[in-house]
Structure formats: C-alpha cells, structure tokens
Amino acid sequence: MIPLGFFIAISAVMFCIGIFGVLTRRNAIAVLMSIELILNAANINLVAFNKYLGTPDGLGQIFALFVIAIAAAASVVGLVLIIAIYRHGKSVFVDEYNLMKW
C-alpha cells in the first residue's frame, strides 16, 4: 500500500501549484483552473485520510464528491463572470481590472 505521506506530499505540491497559479496567472481562466487544483489537492487529502484513518462509512469520500459538485457549480459561475467581464472590458487579464478601489 502506498504510504500516507505520499498522498500528503502530492496534495501539498498540488496545493502550492494552485496557490502559485492563482497569484501569478494573468488570465482569469487560468486562475479559475488553479483554483480547481487547490480544491482537488484538498480532495486527495480527504480521500487519503478516509482510507488511512479507516472511517467506516466513507465520510471523506462523500465529502470529496460534494466538493467536486460544488466546485463544478462554482466554476460555472466563475466562467459566466469571466464572459461578462470580457464583454465589458474586452479582456480576461485580471491585472487590467482594478475597479474595486476607493
């Protein structure tokens, strides 16, 4: 069996890549994708701990399914917003939108 440490390591790496992507990507769609990475890193953790801690009713797995479902919904909303903002400003680069200040 693959040791737990492996899962945690890959999850941590995915999380960091996700954070890095969110912070550095200019393209809003890439930012959205990076967010998916963060969520999936969390999912791996959930499933791995479910297995290793031996919770009998698969709580972690169900939780992961919920996260996937909600992430899908969130992505939809995110994509819609990106389309709207693109129509408004002809750009999907997040550093070009700084309307939300003073």
Binding site: I19, T24, Y97, K101
Partner: peptide
C-alpha cells in the same frame, strides 16, 4: 493607506497567503 487598496484581486490574495 489607500495605496494598499489596489483593486487587484491577486494582490489581496498574496497578502492573504
């Protein structure tokens, strides 16, 4: 202090992280 508020989401996130 207003210069802290850039309006750029990524700046905020960076600070948060």
């Amino acid at each position: 202090l207003r210069w802290v508020q850039t309006g750029l989401v990524q700046n905020y996130l960076l600070v948060q992280v």
